[in-house]
Every structure is written in C-alpha cells, then in structure tokens.
Design a protein around this nucleic acid. Sequence first.
DNA 1: ATAGATCCTGCCAATATTT
DNA 2: AAATATTGGCAGGATCTAT
Length: 1097
Amino acid sequence: MTVHPSSWLCVWLCVVVCPCVVSLGVTSPGVALPGVVSLGVASPGVALPGVVSPGAAPPGVASLSVVPPGVVSPGVASLGLASPGVASPGVVSPGVAPPGVASLGVASPGVTSPGVASLGVTSLGVALPGVASPGVALLGVTSPGVASPGVASPGTASPSPLRCGLCGRVFGTAAALGLHSKLHRARRGLACRHCGKSFIHVKRLQTHEVLCEKDGADNTATAAGTATAAPPTPPQPPPTPQPPSKKALLLRHRALEVAEPERGEPAAGSTAADNRRTVYLCAVCQRSYVTLSSLKRHANVHSWRRQYPCRYCDKVFALAEYRTKHEVWHTGERRYQCVFCWDTFVTYYSLKAHQKALHGISPGLIASEKTPNGGYRPKLNALKLYRLLPMRAHKRPYKTYSQSLAADGLQQPPAAAFVTPRPAEPASVIAYGRPSASVIVHSGTATAAAATTATTTASVIAYNGTAAQPSSPPASPPVKPMKKQVLRDYFEAQRAAAAAVPTTPGTVTPTAGVTTASGRTMTYVAKPAYVGTSSESRAAPLCQITVRIGEEAIVKRHISETDLRLQPDGGTAATTTASATGSPASRPRDSAEEDSDGEDRLWRPYYSYKPKRKGGGSNTATKGRKSRWRRPLRALRWGAADGEEGGMRGSRGSPGGTEWKYSCGVCGKPFSALRKLRKHERGHEGGQAAVGGLQAAATGSGGVTARVGRRPSLRFACEQCAKVCKTAAALSRHNRRHWGTTSGTGSPAGVIAYNTAGEEEGETGGGDSLTPGDSMALGCGGITTPGDGSAGHGDTVTAGCGEKAALGHSDTVTAGRGDKVIAGHGDEATPGVGDKVPLSHSDKTAPGPGDKATPSVGSTVTPGPGHTVTADHGDKTTPCRGDKAMPGLGDAAAPGPGSTITPSHGDDAPPGLATPAHGDKTTARHGDKTAPAATPVWADSSAVPPAHADSTTPGDSSNTVPGDTMGDTTGDAVVPLGPPYPPQEHPLALLARAGAAEELGGGPKLGAPPPPRPPPPPAPPGPTFTLPYAPTRLLAAYPYPFALPMALRVVLPDAEAFLGTTTTTTTRGGGTPNQPPPAASAFGFPGGEGPQKGGGK
DNA sequence: ATAGATCCTGCCAATATTT
DNA sequence: AAATATTGGCAGGATCTAT
Ligand SMILES: [Zn+2]
Ligand SMILES: [Zn+2]
Ligand SMILES: [Zn+2]
C-alpha cells in the first residue's frame, strides 16, 4: 500500500547554490547517490538534497531519505538504468516518473519522462557516462521542450544525446542541458545571453545570439547550462555587475545557478556568508522554485494527487486557485471594483483594462514587479486603484494535513495505482490511487512493469539521507530535524519495509510493478479516484481514463457511472494501449476520440500541464493546426463533449474536416455547424436542463448533457450593435466601448455589464441557444454575465448548480426561457443557480466587506468619492493584507465584529454604494454595473440602499472567514440598487489628488482617514446569520449578486442532501458538492476513497 | 487581432497540526 | 498556547485557444 509519499510524481530536489560555490559541475560521482542526483547537480556547493531536505522539503525529502539507496536500485535496475545514474531514476521514480522511468529503461527514450531524464541527467551528470547516455537520450527528447510530445518524439533521438530538443544546442553534460532547458521554459521569455534582450521565440533568440555573440564574447557563462555543465565553473558569482535590467535578465538565465544574494536579504537562514539561495527543482519538469511551497504546489500539476473540481462543471483543476478563478466564470462574481467608478469586474485583468480604457490609468502605475520566474513581488509604492471585494462564495475549508499527506504520497496511496505522469504530459496523466484499476499505463510492457516499479520505488527512492548529508556538509544548510515524528516513523517504517522486502505494499514496488506490469501495458482505466484525497478530490470526476500513448497521455472521463462501467473503456483502453506505443500525437487523439465516443471526457483544463514553451521549435511538426501536441490534448479534454469544440471528436478521424464539428451534448448527434447544433439542441431543451442538472449531480460529473464545451451563446448580444459575445465579460467589455464612446469616462462604464444583463433580459432573449444546461448556467452567468458565457461553463454550471438549485429553479428559469431566460431573470434566475445560497452567503460574505480590499485600501481613501487610491503600504510585509496588521484598519480583522473598522473601510466605498460590504457586493455589483448607467437593472432586486452599507456591517475585514459572519443579512439579496453613483471627478484627477494628498509614496496610506464614507451601519452583530445549511459548502450556491428567489433557497437543502454534502469540512467525507457522492464509491474504484487517506489503503 | 480562459509563481495570510 | 506545516488567495502576467 503504501507508497510513498514522497512525491508521487515529482521528486523535489532542493539545491542550494552558493554563489561562490556554484560550481555545479562538480558533482562528484561519488556523491551521486541516488539522492545525490539531484544534488549531484548541485555539486559541492550544493547542498545535498538529503541535507536540505529535512528542513526544506519534507515530503520529498523524506521520501528520499526513507528509501535506502539500495532499495532504489532494484527498481532501477529493472529499469535498466542500473547504473549509479540509476539513482536518479530512483529518485525520480518515486512518484514521478515511474512511467517514464520505465520507459526509459525499457522502452524508448521517448517514453521516458522528461523529469526523469532530467534527473538522470543531472545526476548522471558527470558520473556515468554510460548511463548517461540513456538518460541523455531521453533528455534530449524530453526535457526542454519536453513537453511537447511532438517534440519529444522519441524517435527523434537527437544525434547527440545532449542536444536540446528545442534549439538543437548540444551540451556536454546532462546537467547543462537540463539547465539550458530551463531557458526555454523561462517564463519571461527568452533572453539573449549576451545582451539580455528577450525574445519570444527560440529561433529568434538564436538568431540574435549569433549576432550578438560576435559582438561580445559571451562572458557569462551560458546560462545555467553552462554552469552546470562545466564542472567547476567559476561560480556564477554574484551577479555580475550589470545594469539592473540586464541583471534581471541574466537571472533568468541562470535561475538555477544563482547564488546571488538573495534579493536583498540573505536568505533567511543563511548567514551573511551564505548567500546561498535555495532553489527547489521539480524532478519532473525541472522547473525551479524559490520556495518549497511553490514547488509542492506545482507538484500537483504532475501528480494530480489532488484535484480540484469545479462546483459547477466538470472541469478539474490541479490547483485550488485555478478552480477558484474558474468558478468565477460561473458565478459571475465581480470582485474587482474600480475605485474611480465603482464598477466591478470579474477579473483583475478586466479591471485593469477598464481602468486603462476609461480612466487612463496605465498599468505600470500600479503594477508590481515580478520575479524573473514570474512570481509576484509586491511593490512598495504601488497604488491600488481597485478594491477587491470579498469572495462571496463560501470558502472551502482548507484541506487537512492528512489529506495533504496523502496527497503527497506520504500517505500512501495504493502503490500500484499510481502512475506517474510522464514528463511530457504529466498532467495528463493522472494517477489514481487505485491501483489496479486505475492504472495507467502504457505501452511498453516492460514499461508498465517498470513503471510500476518505479512507482513503488519511487516512493521510496532514494537515498539515505545519510549518505547525502555527509557529502555535502558544507553546503548543507542547517538541516532541520524533521519535525514530525510521524513522518519519521513513517519513514522508518518504510525503510524497514524496504529493507525487508519490497513486499510491503508500498514498497513493493517491484512487486507491484510486476504485477501490473505483467505484462502489458497499457492502458488503463481510470478510476475515479478519489484517490485524491482531497476532499475535493472526491469531487473528482468519476472516472478518468488515461491512456498513454506514445508521448501523450490522454485523459478522459466518463460522465456517468454507467458509462464507466459499461465502458468499454476497458476495451478502449486496451486498444489504446496497443496503439499507444505508437506515435504520439496522433494516436492519442485517436484513442481519445474513441473514447470520446464513449463519451467521457473529462475535461481537464488545458493541456495538461506541460512545460511551457513556445515556439517551436522542433516540433513544429505540426499537425493540424497548431500542431503542437496541445491540440490533441485539448481535444481530448473535451472529448467529444463539446460539441462545439468537439470537433475533434467528431472528426474522429479527422479533425479536420468540417465534418461534424459539433455534436449534441444530449444525443451526440454531430453537426457541421454550430447553428445546426443549436437548433437541434433546442429540441432537447425541454426539460433537459433540469434533468441534466440532476444527472449531473448524480453522476457527479455532469451529466452528459451537461458537459458541453464552450458554446457561444447569443445571450450576450450587445443591444446596441448586435454584436454577440460569448461571455458576459466580453459583452461587458464590449458595452464598455459603447459607453466609452458615449459617455466617456465619467460614467462608470461598469455599468455595462450588468446592466446589460439586466437589460438583457430582454435581450437575452436572444440568447439562446443554450442548451438547457446552459440555461442554468446562464443563470448564473447571467448575472454576471459572464456567464457562462462562456461557454463552457455554462453548461456546466448547469449541472452543478443546477443540481441543486436547479431543479427548482430550473424550472423556473430555465426551461422556459431557455436561454434567455437567463438573462432575464437574470437575475433571478440566475441565481437560480447558485443561488441558493447566495443570499445567505452573501451575507456571509458580507462581513467581509471589503475587507480585504479594504484594508488594503484602507489606506486610501478616497475622497469622498471614493476613489481611493491607496498605496499599498506596502510594506512588503504585508502588502495588502497587512491590514490586519494595521491597527487602524485592520483590525478589522475581527471577524465577526468586524465592525470595527468598518468605517474605515468604508472608505472606499463609494458613498453611494456603501461599501463594499458585501452587501454591496451585491449591491455593488449590481450596482456597479448597473448603476452607472443607470439602469439599475438589477436594481430591482438589487437595489441596495445605499446605505447599505450597512451591509457592511461587519466591517471586518477579514476576509473571509467563513464564518464570517455573514453579516449582512440582509437581505440579501435583493437589495435595491443604490442610487447611482455620485458624480465623480475624473479619475485621473482623483488620482492626482490622491496622490498628492496622500501618499503615493507611501504616505499615509493606511492611516488615511477614511473617507467619510458612510459608516456602515452597524453591523449586525457578529455573525449573524447562519446559513440554513451548513456553511460549509455551498455548493451550489453561489450567491452572487443576484437575488435569488426564495424558492431557490428552499431548494437548497435538498440539494445538499442530494449532494450529500454538507459536510463540513473535514474533508473527507463526503462528497463534494459536485460529485455525486457516494456513487463514487460505487464506482468501485477500489479503494476509493475511504481509506485512502488513511492508509490506505 | 482580439477575446476568453487557463496556467504560473513568489508572497503571505489563514488554517491545520504538533509540540 | 506556541511553533510549525500546509493550503490557498493574490498580483500581474504569460500562454493558449478560439474566433
Ligand atoms: Zn514539474
Ligand atoms: Zn466550471
Ligand atoms: Zn472605473
């Protein structure tokens, strides 16, 4: 059972680099313990993983340590990589690359996972020549570009093992190549090694470098690559003296190498002397991170141990944050409020766009800088020209540690189950715990076995800490003792087991592997997994199937259980399998398609994770359009589903043709034109919507129907010019233009959107098309607009929301109107959806009023009007959040009460509006949007009395707390809109004023007296409301601004019941909202959840 | 070209676990 | 309660995909 936590997938390497030391190359062979590998890279200077690990990377490390080298070997051996180099594999293996590994050994290089490769590389680094090669080969393929399958093509084997798949550059060592590959992945683009000039495309960069090189010799070592590669390169010392800008650029290049003094401050731990900086590397894709937490977070992208399903649709995300952002599309929640006009926006970007367009604010004014790696680095003096309203949705409880552990592998999932993703397509792959079932797989028989093994091994992996440590003493930073005994124990146990024999469940890898391996290969079906552990996971799609073919992996999901069961998946899988081996791209697709037929499709957002990169080098192979592998993946994603997009599916054979690009979500009938499809779908509409929703609910995934891809809907048609937008957001944007033109800044553009909606109601009428499901969705969306806009969601939504509410509403809403409806009621309806809860929630939310925002803002204030400009205080420390800290404001922290500060916050709030209190939100939102314009479309419902502020009440800022109170009760809902926004000055003027007055620089920010905003009404005492149901989940609820009809609310309960949810918290349990609860188990995934965590199994 | 949506990653607050 | 470990939200983009 158990496997190891460690990373399922990734191995994390922690490398500490000393500037001085830097010599990466150094790696000593000896060092090279498996664990070493990673370390190896680092070289002397580098701390060994082991070392580091303790403190740093617990999980990963732990795992490593756990397993004795010896242990590893076995697995390794099998693989083929026997050599020391093996170690690396071992490392990887753990979770990581099993498959890959396997593949390596056995199969084709291509197979291998990049991660592996990389590791191999690294580790091997110097060390084993022989070994290296294999690894290398792989690397070549995988690594950099890694991602792209196409690229990867195994076959590709580059002449030189150490050749970069993207640019063709040849390196002396794997390590060098690995580092080099980072360049390609570098977020910010590709920068010239010589002059720092950045390029988007590799080719261009190369061209440029040639020229540039001539000019200036390259002084700097090449990027990391060099560094690493060469043995002892002189340290990459501290950054060379270059102009900052260049310097920055260089940093990118050398991300890994770096040893620079930290950004300023010596690393925390490090002593002055140490300038060392710790870099955490993902064994799978080699990305580097400054913080361990970032790496861990990233790891899930490969492992998918945890899954974060959308409450409204069947999409599943690897990061909670992604899901959260995505859900906004369903809910339409507009949390970003312009301080100048109070208009609210769904996304930060839309806000920025708005400010730029209407208020003339240049992004640079407020933008914070980013780290070379793309991370956020707060800017001290940044002005915050917007308010971030508190999330309305209920916050989900944090996952418990245990879960997490499980996730990481600590807990051990069923060993067998795992699959590791390959580097390339890591994401795609999903591994589920259930062993058998899930399994994945792919081709090469051997592979399979190997994989397994690997896996097992993987968990284990590595080496002892001991060994490692010794070696690097110097570098090794302070190692911290492991904290948790538990872990220790766990490890110990593992160790023991390992020693004893593989038998142990977890350990066993080999065994396991074998088993699985048994032969064949391939495919698999996935099981649902609950593997995941996370509570959310539950929600996970019922099942997923992953197929790996050649390079790509495909995931599909089945919607219904039934499907699953029936599924031929097996068959399919099998089939796939077979094919698997085959060519990468195409195959996958095919297979996918096939499956798709089946229907399922899970959708996984985007390509699965792949390394970033563009250009394309190599591969350009293009396939159909974009060629990249992506495409295929994408197709897979939706699978047949969306009709629209689905094209692929339909095409099955050939995506290309016009063919049936669109297929009915309900009956699957293919259509060549979207219109036709729509028309057809209408036919289904009747009750479907509702039904669909249910189903969805039931199934968990959304019903078949539900899932749809994005469908454009007419709902978002501009009244003024008839333009049809896909999403509310788009429409909003579009409308803004009209406004813009017309009104000019003054008027709050914002209005638009909402209004629109409202207006739309009628408009909506247009809409249309949506599928039933959609409707629902819309509902939500409707409101917002966005609604679903997008499409995709829409559907989804439906389901989700639907479910619960749904029905109830649905009726209401949906059906009839269908599309439009949405709008119309929009509001209401919409809410329909989620609604439910909403109100309550809202309340909840309320408290928050702005909290967050506030604080930040706090500062600011706005002159009367509101605009605030606040600066961040920046403090770094707390940038925004600080609030809490700030007495003044913050305080707010207090949750319930919050009251406190409220006023202050209030500041922000526009007079009229009232603060943000949530109420506002509601209001606001509506208001916002509406307001300006005037129309209060929503007004009706929404009207919030300006006063509302009351709502605000709470003031507290806290963000969120769930518990929060809810403050407002109020009514939620429906508050009428407040009065129109008060006249305002030109934003710029305000800005200027603000600046002057206040701080720009830092002034007074916080302290700033809040503008006199209307003090919020006393908040309701504490938490006033309680939700009818457990707060915990709101599944459906999404409250948003819309007022919901009571009916809806009523519904909720049932819904919950339906869902099963409720739970609170603790994760485990139950179900997730979306998912159908129990069913899952039914699926049989083995293991299922239950135990997962626990021990699994 | 534009819009829509997802993906990233450093930071840090909120939480969960341990000690 | 304090210390420590995790999770997740945010900023500000980057990157893709679709149209
Ligand atoms: Zn990675
Ligand atoms: Zn969704
Ligand atoms: Zn504005």
